[in-house]
């Protein structure tokens, strides 16, 4: 496996800003927290906190996805992927190195989420006994699957397009516009099921939790079907990436 030093550098640059964003995020939430304290909403209470945080932090996926896209596209635009193959790296090894990168980023986001949850929970949750702390921590795992699937999609788009700017635009446009609009029309106009769309399925892993403080009618567990669909898409994206890397000239 070779995660090239360049991307380690870029990674650290981005990683640091990622932490900064989290700091900022914590601050923001600390402010928000006083409001919630007043209204008595237990966002950072253990048990609930995992689903809440896992949902809130979903935005960071985009930063990680950009890291993945930049990492792939730079290999193509600098042609270093070509020289790596000439030097004797196999195409599968190259894919593994990039999958290694997304595994690493996934673990990182899982760890950060856990630490963040523990800190916020310890600070603000009325109950801090161990069983309560670990209840619902499967949302951390679900969040990691979500990130992993999302990054696999980024990997696929970047490998397909090979140009940084265009990949990022297409990726963001698809994830934030094309699919949500398409599924929105299908769901509300024609009442068709949309659970099988990739971005939707990744998003479904951790459902929007906050409504439950109003309606109390939210899926507050990780559903097996969501896990299966998301895993399926992840496998499909990784396999398509494999085919692209395997079959194309570089």
């Amino acid at each position: 496996m070779i995660i090239l030093a360049l991307f380690v550098l870029i990674y650290f640059a981005v990683g640091l800003s990622f932490k900064k964003v989290i700091d900022w995020f914590i601050e923001e939430n600390a402010e928000g927290f006083s409001f919630f304290v007043d209204s008595g909403l237990p966002i950072f209470d253990f048990v609930d906190i995992w689903q809440n945080l896992a949902y809130i932090t979903f935005l960071f996926k985009y930063i990680l996805a950009f890291v993945v896209i930049i990492s792939i596209c730079l290999e193509y635009s600098n042609k270093t992927i070509r020289q790596n193959f000439i030097d004797g790296l196999s195409r599968t090894e190259f894919l593994f190195s990039k999958v290694g990168l997304i595994v690493f980023l996934t673990l990182l986001s899982g760890i950060l989420l856990t630490i963040l949850g523990l800190i916020l929970g310890m600070l603000y949750s009325p109950v801090t006994s161990f069983p309560f702390v670990i209840t619902n921590m499967e949302f951390v795992l679900a969040h990691m699957l979500e990130v992993f699937g999302f990054l696999s999609f980024a990997l696929f788009v970047a490998t397909l397009i090979r140009r940084t700017g265009f990949s990022i635009v297409l990726f963001v446009f698809y994830a934030t516009s094309i699919e949500p609009i398409a599924t929105g029309i299908m769901k509300y106009q024609y009442e068709l099921p949309v659970w099988y769309f990739p971005i939707t399925s990744f998003g479904n892993l951790v459902r929007l939790p906050f409504e439950k403080y109003i309606f109390r009618e939210v899926q507050d567990y990780v559903a097996l079907q969501d896990v299966l669909v998301a895993s399926g898409w992840t496998a499909i994206f990784l396999y398509l990436t494999y085919l692209l890397i395997k079959k194309r000239d570089v």
Binding site: L6, N78, K79, T80, I86, G88, R91
Partner: peptide
């Protein structure tokens, strides 16, 4: 691919991490 480890090769332009 492992056989290429015994070959030193440059195609067209020198390619390196800039």
């Amino acid at each position: 691919h492992a056989l290429r480890k015994r070959i030193g090769a440059i195609l067209e332009h020198p390619i390196f991490y800039p």
